[in-house]
């Protein structure tokens, strides 16, 4: 299946999903994930338009508060993408993010949110295909949930 058929398949089924118009934030580190997003773009790979990318220098600087804030102010889902373990430009920022992710997963419950609303993925600089795939998958996962209880629109 070519990239565009995959995307069209997603659109055809839209009537069946719970949240056809989700707001998904992708927090990407500058050195790997954002570069991969760039590559996905220049390679004309398609992924859903519901994803908004926010660039960070490193996932190690993404404080749990930013993620909880995004989710409790109306984002339907947050995905954090960083370098593969061992590849972090700042040595171990992604290791920190990994341990914070555990804390965030626990706290989703305290804010009455489903665990599927948050995800952490490693995407290397050359993995444009993986980036597009992960974004499609995450969007699908969020579309299958009802809109966030914190959404006001």
């Amino acid at each position: 299946m070519s990239e565009s058929t995959v995307c069209q398949a997603g659109v055809e089924q839209d009537a069946m999903v719970q949240n056809p118009d989700p707001l998904v934030l992708a927090f990407c580190c500058n050195w790997c994930a954002y570069t991969a997003a760039d590559l996905a773009g220049t390679s004309r790979l398609q992924y859903p338009p519901f994803v908004r990318i926010v660039r960070f220098m490193c996932t190690g600087m993404i404080h749990p508060n930013l993620i909880i804030d995004a989710l409790t102010k109306g984002a339907d889902g947050v995905i954090v993408c960083g370098c593969h373990p061992g590849d972090c430009h700042y040595i171990e920022g992604n290791v920190r993010m990994k341990s914070r992710a555990e804390a965030i997963e626990l706290m989703l419950e305290d804010f009455g949110l489903e665990p599927e609303r948050f995800r952490l993925e490693w995407v290397g600089a050359s993995e444009g295909v993986k980036f597009a795939h992960v974004m499609r998958d995450m969007t699908r996962q969020i579309q299958d949930l009802p809109p966030s209880p914190y959404r006001t629109d």
């Binding site: 749990p64 508060n65 920190r96 341990s99 555990e102 804390a103 626990l106 305290d110």
Partner: peptide, 16 residues
């Protein structure tokens, strides 16, 4: 709570 959970992980403790 969010800050404290973050702070526990940054000194390497298990938030669970």
């Amino acid at each position: 709570m969010v800050d404290m959970m973050g702070s526990l992980t940054s000194v390497g403790l298990d938030p669970k």
